[in-house]
């Protein structure tokens, strides 16, 4: 049996909104490590990895490891029926082919339950070896989203280059070119407004803006985003979910033929 009570129910709504366009179906796994998901998009270019640790739940009960296959669009439809301030509880009985989402208003004057059919999904998990990244950039997530959106009106791909100068986002399209450079900036009022660049080696990688724009849907989950980049390796784009875990996207680069 499984019962997970999340006081910040709005967080689960945001998680679904951030991944439902990238991935159709996924297994949610529940274990002592936490409530997690790993799923690849149908073109096998991006993987999303989510972890919500048990400490973040008011009640985290699963007496054995459970994997629940869900259609993410259907799950998002159900979660849209929850208020942003609602407490969300997930419940599943052993051997059941359904999961129940219970929504409680903060004042407890409205309680709703929605039962969703589970599905069998054969998914293999990817192993991500530990990598030493050439550069790690931490910046405000809204700034990163803005840059990806702006550049996608000019071109289809973004070149992300980290040098001593800073981190450069470049694109090229039929109408012209665009370059945005963000320099390290730690002289800010709030730590989440800082841009911090750790560079071991200069690195330059090209990615499809369609994917970058898709993963910036996770922006409401975190004030900051971390880009981990190494030549010839997928980028890791991480949004930390305060005190609970993270949502990470692994995105394969494009190469010049």
């Amino acid at each position: 049996m499984l019962e997970l009570r999340l006081v910040q129910g709005g967080l689960l709504k945001k998680v679904l909104e951030s991944i439902k366009d990238l991935v159709n179906d996924a297994n949610f796994d529940c274990s002592a490590t936490g409530f997690s998901l790993q799923a690849m998009d149908s073109s096998q270019v991006a993987v999303v990895a989510l972890l919500l640790r048990p400490e973040g739940f008011e009640r985290y009960w699963c007496d054995r490891n459970i994997s629940m296959g869900m259609n993410l669009n259907n799950m998002a439809k159900m979660l849209k029926c929850a208020g942003n301030d609602d407490i969300i509880t997930l419940k599943a009985e052993d051997g059941s082919d359904t999961v129940t989402f219970m929504f409680e208003s903060p004042t407890q004057d409205k309680i709703a339950d929605f039962e969703m059919k589970l599905m069998d999904i054969n998914s293999e998990r990817l192993g991500f070896p530990e990598a030493d990244y050439h550069a790690i950039v931490r910046m405000p997530s809204s700034e990163f989203a803005r840059i990806c959106k702006d550049l996608s009106s000019i071109g289809n791909t973004v070149v992300i280059s980290v040098t001593k100068e800073g981190v450069r986002f470049s694109t090229r399209g039929d109408i012209g070119t665009a370059n945005v450079v963000c320099r390290q900036n730690t002289a800010v009022d709030k730590p989440e407004e800082a841009t911090i660049i750790e560079m071991n080696e200069p690195v330059s990688l090209t990615f499809g803006l369609r994917y970058m724009n898709s993963l910036t849907k996770a922006t409401p989950l975190s004030n900051t985003v971390t880009l981990s980049l190494s030549s010839g390796l997928p980028a890791v784009v991480e949004y930390r979910i305060a005190e609970m875990g993270y949502i990470r996207f692994y995105l394969a680069p494009k190469i010049e033929e």
């Binding site: 073109s43 096998q44 293999e124 998990r125 990817l126 192993g127 070896p129 090209t206 997928p234």
Partner: peptide, 14 residues
């Protein structure tokens, strides 16, 4: 010409 790489080129399935 740019080619989009797939994640399978980098990672192994468990």
């Amino acid at each position: 010409l740019q080619t989009q790489l797939r994640l399978e080129a980098f990672y192994t399935f468990n």
